[in-house]
Write a protein that binds this DNA or RNA. Structure first.
Lengths: 306, 306
DNA sequence: ATGTCTTAATCACTATTTTTAATCAAAGAA
DNA sequence: TTCTTTGATTAAAAATAGTGATTAAGACAT
C-alpha cells in the first residue's frame, strides 16, 4: 500500500540546502560532507520522481515544486522533532527547553517577571526568549524555531492553538494640557494636528490603539513613527504630544518624566494577550501551565494596581 | 542542533505493530521478517530513549506513552505520504487516486452523480468511495485513510479544512392525513404518540431533523430507530407515521408509495453539506475543484426542482 | 508430566544504503 | 595565466537494515 517514503535525514539536508542555497555551506551546517549532501538531493529527486532544483553548471535554483517540497518537509521535520523531544522529556513534562517568543510591546514588560516565576514554578524548564514582530513569530512558530508565542490578539488567520491569558488596558500619556482636555471630553479629534505619536507599522500596538480610539484621521497622527515604546514616549514628551501605552509598560514605570500626565483610558480600551502554540505539539500540558502563570502575572498586576 | 531523528520505516513498523498487536502479523503486513520488526521496535525505543511497549515474556502491551508516540507517528507518516503523493502527481494536479468518504444519508444520493461528473471533468482522477458514520470518517480523514469527506454540517470540533458546498432542504413524508394536518398547522406536537420515525443514533440526520423541528419530546418519536433511509420510509409507511427526508434522497425518488404524502418543509429547515480535508494536504486545488463540482450538482438539482 | 504451539528476542550473517575522501570539470576573479 | 569556488562523480568504508535459524518462555492439549 504505502510507498517508498523518503529518508528523514535527506529531508533535513534539503532544508539545510534551502536555507544556505549552497551545497558546501549546507553540508557544513549539517556536519556531513558536500558529496553526501549532493547525493542525498539526487536520491530524493529520484525517489520522489521529480526535479527539486534546476542545475546551471555552476549554481542552482529551487524549482517552484522544490519549494513546495521544502515547505512540506519542514512540517514533517518539525513533527518528528516534536516526537523526539516529547520522548526525551517523557516523565518530566514540565522540563526541557522552552523557546518563547514575544513582541516588543510585551516582551520587555512581561518576560522578566515570567522568567522569574518560571524559575520558581518550573525549575526544570530552560527558558529561551526571543523578541520579534507578530508576523515573524508566527513563521517561527510554524517552522518549529520557537515553541510558544505570547502575542497581542487578535492575530491574523492561523491554525495554532490559542489561549487567552488576560487583558492589558490602554493608557494615554503625554502633554498634561492635552491629556486634561481629552479627560474631560474623550473626543480625540479636538487634539491638535500631528499631536498623536504612534509606533511604526510593524508593531501591532498602533493598529490596536488606532482602532480602539477611532483616530483613523491621518491628520491627528504624527507622520514620524517611533520604533520602540521608550523612543515613543520621548517623542511625545519632546513634541508635547500624546501617545498610547499598554498597562504592562506603565506598570514598569516607563513614564518617568515629571511633566507628563498619565491617564487610564476607558475600560473597553484594552488589548487581549494570548499564548499560541502548534496544534500538533505534544507539550500542551506545559504550555497550559505557562499560560496559567502568565494569567496569574497579569491578574496580580491588576490587583496590585487597584 | 536537531537530534537524531527516528527512521520513518521504523515508525511504519510501529504503526503496523499497533494495528495488529502481534509481531508476526505486523511483520507480514509490512513485508519484512519478524526479527526485522522486533529489532526496529527495540531500535526506536533506544533512539527515543523510552519504553513503547511493556513485554510480558510472551505477549506485550503498548505503554500509554507508546500510544502517544503511535498517534504522532501516524501524523508524520500521513504528512510524508502526502509529500510523496504530491510529487508523484506533480504536473497532473487533477489526477491520482481520490479516496472520498461520505455518510449513509448522502452517499447513495449524491455520489453516483458525482462519480459520473468526475469521470467527465476529472478523467485522470481515480475515485474511491467509502461510506461510514461522521465520526469514523473524521478518524479516517485524520489518519490518511481517506482524502476528502462529504458530510452534513455542522461537524464536531475539528481541525480540517472545510468548504460549504450547498444546502439540502428537509422534506416530511408519510401518512397523508398526518401530513395534511401538519401542513395546515406546523406544530408537530399535535401528531399522535410514536408517529415520528427516525434513523438510529449514529446518523446525524436524526439530530438535525429533531433540532430543526423542535420535537425533542420523546413521546412523539417512535422508540424503534431505522438503520437506513429506505427502511425508515417503509417503517413510516407501514405504521402510518411520518418521517423526515433530505431533498437529495427525495430527488432520487426514494418515496414511491402512492399513498404517501410528501411535503417540503419551511425554507429554514435544511442541512448544510460540506467538504472536509486535511489542512496539511497538498492537493487543495483538486479538492476545491471537487467542491465546485458538488456545489454545481446541488444547485442543478435545486434548479431542476423549481 | 510431556510434547506441541505460539510468542517475541537474539545471533551470526548478508545486502543495502549512507557517508566519506579524493578528484574532476566548469566558471569567475585576481 | 593561476587560484578559488562551484557542484558532480568515483570508489572505498562505515553504518544500517534485513534475513533465517535458534532460543526461551508461556499456553494448552493430551
Amino acid at each position: 500500500m504505502s510507498a517508498n517514503l523518503p529518508n528523514l535525514k535527506h529531508l533535513q539536508y534539503l532544508l539545510a540546502l534551502y536555507q544556505y542555497q549552497n551545497f558546501n555551506r549546507a553540508a557544513d551546517a549539517s556536519f556531513v560532507s558536500q558529496s553526501t549532501l549532493s547525493s542525498a538531493i539526487l536520491k530524493l529527486e529520484e525517489q520522489l520522481r521529480c526535479q527539486l532544483i534546476e542545475r546551471d553548471h555552476k549554481s542552482f535554483v529551487f524549482t517552484p515544486h522544490g519549494e513546495e517540497v521544502v515547505k512540506k518537509a519542514r512540517q514533517i521535520i518539525v513533527a518528528t522533532t516534536e516526537l523526539s523531544d516529547y520522548c526525551r522529556h517523557y516523565g518530566t513534562p514540565f522540563g526541557g527547553n522552552l523557546r518563547l517568543g514575544s513582541i516588543p510591546t510585551i516582551a520587555p514588560y512581561l518576560l522578566t517577571d515570567l522568567a522569574e516565576i518560571c524559575q520558581q514554578q518550573l525549575p526544570d524548564v530552560s527558558l529561551y526568549l526571543r523578541e520579534d514582530t507578530t508576523e515573524n513569530l508566527m513563521r517561527m512558530l510554524a517552522d518549529g524555531e520557537i515553541d510558544v508565542a505570547i502575542l497581542a490578539l487578535p492575530v491574523p488567520q492561523h491554525s495554532f492553538q490559542q489561549k487567552v491569558v488576560g487583558r492589558d488596558a490602554f493608557y494615554i500619556t503625554g502633554n498634561s494640557a492635552l491629556i486634561n482636555k481629552v479627560k474631560q471630553d474623550p473626543d480625540y479629534h479636538q487634539l491638535p494636528q500631528h499631536s498623536i505619536f504612534l509606533l511604526s507599522q510593524e508593531h501591532c500596538l498602533s493598529e490596536h490603539a488606532v482602532s480602539a480610539c477611532n483616530v483613523e484621521d491621518q491628520g491627528l497622527i504624527h507622520p514620524f513613527y517611533a520604533s520602540s515604546l521608550t523612543t515613543l514616549i520621548q517623542m511625545a514628551h519632546y513634541h508635547k504630544g500624546v501617545t498610547f501605552l499598554p498597562q504592562m509598560a506603565v506598570d514598569k514605570g516607563v513614564v518617568s518624566q515629571k511633566d507628563m500626565a498619565l491617564e487610564k483610558m476607558p475600560d473597553d480600551m484594552y488589548r487581549e494577550i494570548g499564548l499560541l502554540w502548534r496544534t500538533t505539539s505534544m507539550r500542551q500540558r506545559l504550555f497550559l501551565k505557562v499560560s496559567q502563570l502568565v494569567t496569574d502575572l497579569l491578574d496580580i498586576e491588576k490587583i496590585h494596581k487597584s
